[in-house]
Design a protein around this nucleic acid. Structure first.
Lengths: 182, 182
DNA sequence: GATTCCATGTAAATGGTTACATGATTCT
DNA sequence: AGAATCATGTAACCATTTACATGGAATC
């Protein structure tokens, strides 16, 4: 996963490992955390494999290593990107993939987004059935937070579906966020 | 984390490892995945530590091992549960903790929920500032999905805050889910 | 009688974090 | 001058997944 995120970050502009980490933080950062402990080793491995090219530059007395994705890397990246979203991964990791969907041809992208919505609906149904069978009154105090977690999941899935509908049509986000009734 | 989830699952009723996995799946399952590869070793370690008691029972020719949380285990569980939610963990893992909040005294629980809401607001602010500075028009096609991910994050945080407000007052969930405008 | 589910585990491989180590550059 | 940040890495440790291995019990 980190490999693909790195390659996605330096598709066009070359960056240092340090820059890449910063870029990850303030873009996909909400969904994916990188740290130097595996970032730098990953950069070396990807360079060895030929997925990145490294370009050393001197800045005063310091060597800076700039990385950029090669054609081979681009292929690997697009292969990963165009594969169906892996539902075994955490929701956050799934979002990290969709983050790059702008790099995908519209056809493939739409297919994947629809597919993804379908998977979420499939996960949503059993949860909704459980919710329906639950007693309406606050019967057992101790169970409340378990039920709350269930509803959290249902809500989150609903919201993801709404979001997917939105981005499938590439609507602007000016009116995406809703007012919240206190 | 798994240790505490296990202990939380067998606070009152004794279960086998197999049962525990099932119970995790259809309760916190949306947020936390267990697998036998670490579940069984974890059961042994917790038993050695004295956090669980094991009770072997014969069912025909098969030995079944039932586990239950000891007093020592309960203490450890409650200590974990009453600590502030660790914001370095994934959002899913955070929810897995709140799942057990029914076991917490109201005072501690309310404090933790308010604290948690505060942390989320703190994470939300920078994202909202980025969103505000973004050009309103769909300037760059390729950036659209990056921006979409940003809005997803903002939406998710808003929803979490709304949910937290709801559960802090222990409101029933009959009207929690909103209708979705297509 | 075969398949599915119940039930318990282990071992190898992989994945990932944390702390450490070092030093240059830029800002105050 | 001192602090913060830029910049690159390693090593030890810890966590986690996957595949394998085994067999009883219940269901069709």
């Amino acid at each position: 996963m980190l490999d693909y995120i790195i390659m996605g970050m330096v598709l066009e502009k070359e960056l240092t490992g340090y820059d890449i980490k910063k870029k990850v933080e303030n873009s996909v950062g909400t969904f994916y955390k990188a740290n130097y402990g595996r970032l730098y080793p990953a950069l070396n491995k990807l360079t060895e494999k030929g997925c990145l090219i490294m370009n050393e530059q001197m800045q005063g007395k310091r060597i800076k290593k700039y990385y950029k994705t090669t054609e081979l890397g681009k292929e690997a990246f697009l292969e990963w990107l165009s594969a169906p979203v892996d539902m075994n991964m955490s929701g956050e990791a799934q979002l990290a993939q969709i983050f790059f969907f702008g790099e995908l041809p519209k056809e493939v992208r739409d297919k994947r987004l629809q597919e993804y919505a379908f998977f979420i609906e499939q996960g949503l149904n059993p949860l909704q059935n459980i919710a329906k069978m639950l007693p309406n009154d606050n019967s057992d105090e101790k169970d409340y937070f378990g039920i709350a977690a269930l509803y959290y999941g249902i809500q989150a899935m609903h919201n993801t579906l709404r979001w997917l509908n939105h981005i499938r049509e590439q609507k602007p986000f000016s009116q995406f966020l809703r007012k919240h009734d206190e």
